[in-house]
């Protein structure tokens, strides 16, 4: 009954596309198995995965903005005075627009103190990460290099690219010890393995049941942790904003809308959206665009082109 989400073929993006997650990811429905020709395409890419000047350059560039998005989100979610009882020790956070109202020196000092406090909080983090659809390991390695990351597990379904990833990580002692790759589907990750960061980059648009995959991913996020996703096509965004956010703005859904109606009508997903609201919140969304002259840049609109989203699992359930 499920219909496949149409994937627009953008030649620019084709090179970085990989079916990280085959339909096997969800309940072994395998009527959309990766075609041999596509598999061959990605096997070829495996050889040049780590050449930033090769066909994967655009993906290497994208990795930069992914990391910016993850870092920015984590820093912005740090609660400065959390857990500090003594007022003396608290960092002063004026509840008003102090930058305009206070003399610049004082405002500058306040800002400096806040920055230092955030930096100290950030430095103390020890994050455990799960990179779903890790491919050749671009993002996994970058995560593993961050001092605040204590371990990274990368999973993918292609033995070929995992071999590349495994080989590449041995070149750098800094990541080798923190990083390990496993050939497995998301649902094979033990249920009680929880992570501070779960990433699904350029992956959801390739699966038939994004909601289920996402649900699976969210289940592995620790309370207070984040799931980061990025995806490349507009169809997905429509789906996401309409269903996932519970906003039925069908007026703006473009051509092919009825494709989504299947999902919308799916009671299981609707139920999930309800659960979602209690347990998760979207804390940041950003569009981004590739400009050949200057690489990937964030845009002000998350409705066009590529798209990042950060979903936070609440510490406590809310109503």
């Amino acid at each position: 009954m499920f219909r496949k989400v149409a994937i627009k073929t953008n030649p620019l993006l084709l090179s970085k596309r990989f079916l990280h997650t085959s339909p096997k990811t969800y309940n072994a429905v395998n009527h959309t198995a990766i075609s041999p020709s596509e598999m061959e395409h990605f096997n070829k890419l495996a050889a040049t995965w780590w050449d930033p000047h090769g066909p994967q350059r655009i993906l290497h560039k994208m990795n930069l903005i992914r990391m910016d998005f993850i870092n920015d989100t984590i820093k912005s979610q740090l609660k400065l005075n959390e857990g500090i009882k003594n007022d003396e020790e608290k960092v002063f956070i004026p509840g008003w627009n102090y930058k305009n109202l206070l003399p610049s020196e004082i405002a500058g000092q306040i800002e400096k103190e806040q920055k230092a406090a955030i930096a100290a909080k950030y430095d103390a983090l020890e994050l455990k990460c799960l990179d779903v659809g890790c491919g050749g390991g671009l993002l996994s390695e970058s995560l593993a290099r961050l001092p605040v990351v204590s371990s990274v597990k990368g999973i993918d379904l292609s033995a070929e690219v995992l071999r590349v990833a495994d080989e590449h990580k041995t070149l750098d002692p800094m990541v080798e010890a923190k990083l390990n790759y496993e050939l497995k589907a998301l649902e094979e990750v033990p249920k009680d393995d929880l992570y501070d960061i779960v990433t699904m980059m350029e992956m959801l648009e390739h699966v038939d049941y994004p909601a289920e995959v996402l649900k699976e991913g969210l289940a592995h996020v620790k309370p207070g942790g984040h799931l980061f996703l990025s995806t490349i096509n507009r169809d997905f965004i429509s789906w996401f904003t309409t269903i996932f956010m519970g906003e039925y703005v069908l007026k703006i859904v473009p051509i092919g809308t009825h494709t989504y109606s299947k999902y919308i009508n799916d009671s299981e997903i609707l139920e999930f959206v309800e659960d979602f609201k209690k347990e998760y919140e979207v804390v940041s969304s950003k569009g981004c665009i590739y400009l050949p002259a200057c690489g990937w840049k964030f845009t002000s609109s998350s409705n066009v082109g590529n798209y990042f989203s950060a979903i936070r699992r609440k510490e406590k359930l809310s109503n």
Binding site: N71, L143, R145
Partner: peptide, 12 residues
């Protein structure tokens, strides 16, 4: 590059 977790020795 460090904040982005890049290998700072890489030309990239």
């Amino acid at each position: 590059s460090t904040e982005r977790g890049l290998d700072i020795g890489s030309k990239f």
